[in-house]
Structures are given as C-alpha cells and as structure tokens.
Write a protein that binds this DNA or RNA. Structure first.
Lengths: 348, 348
DNA sequence: CACCGTGCCGTAAGCGTTTTCTACATGGAG
DNA sequence: CTCCATGTAGAAAACGCTTACGGCACGGTG
C-alpha cells in the first residue's frame, strides 16, 4: 500500500538499516550508497512513518506549546517566537521538528488534557505560556503531570508563568507585580488619588500579581482603596467596556482607570467616551502588555511593555537545549513602562 | 521503565487485548472486567503510547491546522473556532483528539514542510487557512501533496482559501472579490473619485481578489485608476503606515484609502493623522476583516466583516466528518459591509 | 439432550522503524 | 605476510500497541 522503508531499501539495493541511517544521518554511510538511497527515496517519494519511528526511538519530533487563548495576540506573539526557535531543522530523521500550538481556552481541564495528549505522543518538549489557574487541586494535578514528564525526559519550560516547584520545569516569569506597581505609581505621580482597577479573572495568577502591584503602589502612597474600586472581568475588550460602566456607576469621581491588559483598556476607553468623558482630560486610562494595536488607540495607550517575543524565543531555545536554563531554573522578566497619551494630570 | 499496556493487563489479570479494548471502547467488554482494567490503569497511572498506538492502527489522533501568522487575530480567531470543533472527545483510544496549529509565517517552504510533517505523523485531518501563494510551482507542489494525503485517507479542508482542484480537498473560500467591490462601491457612492489602495503581498490570492474587486467597482463607475494609486505591502499596521506615506507623496489629492485589512487600515490612519489629515473629513479609510479592535479605532473602521469563527467551525466539523461537505466540495462564504465612522462624504 | 448462536476474552501476528551486534573488506603497521 | 584498526553494511531483535481469529461458557431452541 504505502511505501515503506523496506521498499526504499529494496530499490536502492541496501538493507533497511542503511536507509534508516542515511535518513537519520547519525551513522557513517558511504557517499555513493547515500546517494543511491536518496534517489530511491525520491523516486518512490517515500515519507517516513512518524509513529513507527517514534515508537522505535522512544521519542518524537513533536514539541507542544500551550496557550490560553490563541485569538489573543498576547499569546500569538509569544507562540510565534517560540515556534520559530523550535521548528526548523534539528529534529530526528533528518527532518524538522513539529512545533504545534494547543489552545486551552483558559480551561484547566483542557490544559491537563493537552498535557496528557502531549505526554502520550512522547513530545520532546513542551512550553506552557500565560498565567496559571490558582485552584490548588488543579495546580497539584498539573505539577504532578509535569514532574512525570520531565522524569520521562521531556523538557518543560514555563513562559510568562509562575514557577512550578519541584517539577523540573524551568520558568521564565513576567514581573507582573512590578509592572502593575509601576503603572499605578505613574498615575499617582501625575496626581491621581481615585483610581479604578479592572482586574482579570479572579483565579489567575497574572490577575492577582498585577492587582497586588497596583495595591502596593496605593499603599506606598498612603491612598486607601475604597470598596468598589476594583472590578473583576475577563481579558477582553467587551469585559473592559462593561466593567468600566460598572465602575462609573459605583464611583463617578474616579479620575483614572487601570486595566488588566490592553484589550480591556480599549473597552474602557470606548465606555468612557460613550459616557462623555474625555481621555485623558477627564479620566486617564492605562493598559498592560503593549500589544501592537495599543499604539494606535486614540490617544495612544500608556501601558507596560512585556518583551513577549524575546521571552518566547528564549523559552524556545531553552526547550531545545540550545540555551542554558537560568540559575535555579527561574528567571524573572521585567516589563517597561510606556507612557503615552492616555494618561495625564487629573483636573482640579 | 515506563508502564506499558502489558503491565496493566498483568495487574488487572486480563490479556493485553482486553486492556486495549476497554481503552478504545470499540469492542464489548464485561462491565466488571472493564472496571478492573480501569482501576489498574489508574493505580499504575498508565498513559498510552501514542506512537505505538498510531503505528498499529495506521492512523493517529493528530489533526493539524495551518495558519499564516499566528500573531494575527485573523488567524487566531479562525484557528480557535476550528480547534474547538476538532478537539474534544471522539479521538481514538477513548481520548481526545490532538488539534494542533502550525504557524507557516506565510512561507511556502514552511507550509510544505508542515504538510510533510503532518503526513509523516499520519494526521487524521488537516485544515489549511488563509490565502494561498500564487507561485505555480509551489501550488503544484502543494496540490500534489494534498492529493497524496487525501488518498491516504487524511481529510483536508481549506478555510478561507481558494479551492485546490482535483485534490480531494474541500474548500470554504471567502468572497474577497465581492467584499472588495462592495467596499469601493460604498466609497464611490459617497462621492469619492480619487481612491488609493494599499494591497497585501503581491503573490497572495487574497491580495489579488480584493484588489480585483476594488478595480471592478472603479471600472463599473467609469473611474480610471491612475498609476500610483495602488501600493503593495504586507498585512500589518507598519506596512499600512509606510504605504500611506508613499500614497500621500504620490498623490496628495486622494480622498479615500482602501486598505488590504484592518491592521493596515490602522497604520494608514496613524500616517494620515500625522500628515494632518482628518478622518473622514479629509480622507476616508476602509479596512477588511472586521477584527475585534477595528470597532475601537477612532473613528471606528468601515470594513467588511468576514465570518471567521463561523467558517472555522464549519471547516472543523467537515474535517471531522461531522458535517456534509458542500456540493462539489466548494462553498463561498460572503462578507458583510460594515459602514462606520471612518468613511464619509469627501469635501468639495 | 444435542446443537448452535451469542458474548467475552486470550493468542499471536503484524505495524514500520531504530539500533545493537556481527561480519566483511580494505589498508597500513609490524 | 600476518594482524588489527577502520570504515561500511546487514541481520535481527526490540518498541508497545491493535485486531483478526479462534475458543470457551452459557443459555435458549429444536
């Protein structure tokens, strides 16, 4: 039916072993023989049977990248960077590695399922991106799975995710707390005293860290947060829009709104504008991440730039064993405050 | 070393065959036996060896999704919809299917490589999204590969891509031409006579079709396009920014700029604003795709909404054999003109 | 009571590679 | 001229699963 290695061998008048060797290029083969084999491969246009190969070699060319939301450029940018480091030549069987991204949709169950699937496929490595869910039970399940996988020789790296202790996974985490703090300090420095905060989903580490940074800044400035100044939502613009309406209802005197990320900030801008508030004259708005579109907002968004592509590339290289993991298996990646037009001095 | 099916069988006091059967659930097994097996699986926490399974069964649980640019929400939204239809239970071995997205970066070579990799893995299906590259040689190579894969039983569906005749692939194409035409007709209807056009990369089908639609509208209105009114670029905002500057240099009297997509349109807006042109009073701007952020532009972008998620979901279902392919293996999906604030009546 | 269909389950033959071990030349050193 | 290192290639044993085939109980039918 389909052409196999044996067919190629027959045609090239060599043994299957030899064909395998030229394909894998990990064993000396005479140039003339190699050429004969290659020609046969071509003529029959043979394609290696991946599963068979993986079975025999006890490892595959698969590398997984887990993301929370593939439609969100935040993850897209990271995934793209990771993939470009991971893909390309260097796989087994003279081939490329198959770098694939899996969309968990932020669901812990799907995350675990994908991990199992990747484990089942004997993936060579997997990179997990984005914040983790804080449910202890789920975290334990993930940690256990990660431990199993690293023990089985799968390299695991966390990109933009808190470390998972004792699992053998190396982590590149974003300094969300520091970024959140810098943003709010900036606003306080401008003179704001009444700041609304639109947080992400309650159960995510990213959400908590950014919020904690915000509150640290408030505390440091001696500002007491009033109840109702913080609203939880999702990481999309729609959520930002709705949360802002709620914030306005709760306290119309807010002079600044800090958003969980740039998309949320955009939704906030839309809501504020509809409510007749000018930005930044009446209300300042700040985002997080500095995604490409945030510079096109009018006014351009003040935000914290996260080096998504750089971190992703580094994570990819570490996953491929092409770069040393950071000492202790943990590195913190800082963001950079980008001050733009959406924040300004409050009136009065 | 790692626990195998045989270990589970031993522990459950049954034969390997029985274990396989309860795992695959495709053969009657007594309830009591099944439970015993399941318990053993749990106690040993056994994970199936995917490659071995795929080898024996001559097919895998893998489903591939090819995208041109994973960092672009256009693809992210489609991929997300496809993946949510494809993933989930229904795979072999009582498990989920592994739906993975592969980022070609728009490179024909990488596209082919990924196809080969997926073929090698004996993928159950693959969905290709986004426009194709027009190079005849590359198209032939892709067509040949697709043909091979469909013959081998892999279901192939093209989503937002022109059909590939004679390959057995089913296609859901977007009516880019119609959308482009509608957009320009709208502008002409408003009174515009001097329209700049920022096209995508020259070699992509999507680019050509949108441009042809634009020109059809011009021709139908008896407007003769002047040389220099069309600039080619990439599908990102940076490119839109630069192309607009070029357009302005070539012909400052343009009253409208039609962009290849929304990101490009955003870049165009930025350039126009910097050049001191108001939108839409001085220059109207139109985009394409209606990505989420385009409604947040100020003014909101007039554009053509493509039902990305719907088309993706349908493609996913077809790939899974859960929905009948359209008659003739080809369906055209139309866009919808969304008139918003970025287009208006020209001055004078 | 004999017989056969039915429901479960075990046996064993693959599936297509990789890789260890062995074997055969060949050529240079002693 | 002998011997051994070296370079190259073949034989065959895994790798862990699926599944066709056969067999054994069991219970219902003739």
């Amino acid at each position: 039916m389909t052409v196999t290695l044996a067919d190629v061998a027959a045609r090239a008048q060599v043994s299957p072993a030899t064909v395998s060797r030229v394909l894998n290029g990990n064993y000396p083969v005479a140039a003339s023989t190699r050429e004969r084999v290659l020609r046969a491969v071509d003529e029959l246009d043979y394609v290696l049977n991946g599963p068979a190969s993986a079975l025999a070699a006890a490892t595959s060319d698969l590398v997984g990248i887990l993301v929370n939301d593939i439609a969100d450029p935040f993850f897209g940018i990271m995934a793209s960077a990771i993939q470009s480091e991971i893909g390309g030549p260097g796989g087994r069987a003279g081939g490329e590695r198959l770098a694939v991204v899996c969309n968990t949709g932020g669901s812990p169950d799907r995350e675990l399922t994908y991990l199992t699937l990747l484990q089942r496929q004997r993936a060579a490595a997997v990179v997990l991106t984005g914040g983790a869910v804080e449910d202890p039970q789920h975290q334990a399940a993930v940690a256990q799975k990660l431990r199993k996988m690293t023990q089985a020789g799968t390299r695991i790296v966390l990109c933009g995710r808190p470390p998972a202790d004792d699992t053998g996974a190396v982590a590149l985490t974003f300094d969300n707390r520091g970024g959140g703090r810098a943003l709010t300090e900036h606003l306080i420095g401008l003179g704001h005293r009444r700041l609304g905060y639109i947080a992400g989903p309650e159960e995510r580490t990213t959400t908590r860290h950014r919020l904690e940074g915000h509150r640290e800044a408030l505390a440091a400035a001696g500002i007491e947060e009033e109840p109702g100044w913080t609203v939880h939502g999702r990481y999309d613009r729609r959520s930002g829009y709705e949360a802002t309406l709620e914030l306005l209802r709760r306290d119309p005197s807010l002079t600044a709104v800090v958003a969980a990320n740039d998309s949320v900030a955009l939704g906030a801008c839309a809501a504020l504008r509809e409510a007749g508030r000018r930005i930044p004259e009446d209300v300042s708005v700040a985002g997080f991440d500095d995604l490409p579109f945030s510079i096109d907002a009018v006014p351009a968004l003040t935000t914290v730039r996260l080096p998504l592509a750089e971190a992703g590339a580094r994570a990819g290289r570490i996953a491929m064993g092409r770069e040393e993991p950071p000492p202790g298996g943990l590195a913190t990646v800082r963001g950079e405050l980008m001050v733009r037009g959406s924040t300004g001095v409050p009136r009065g």
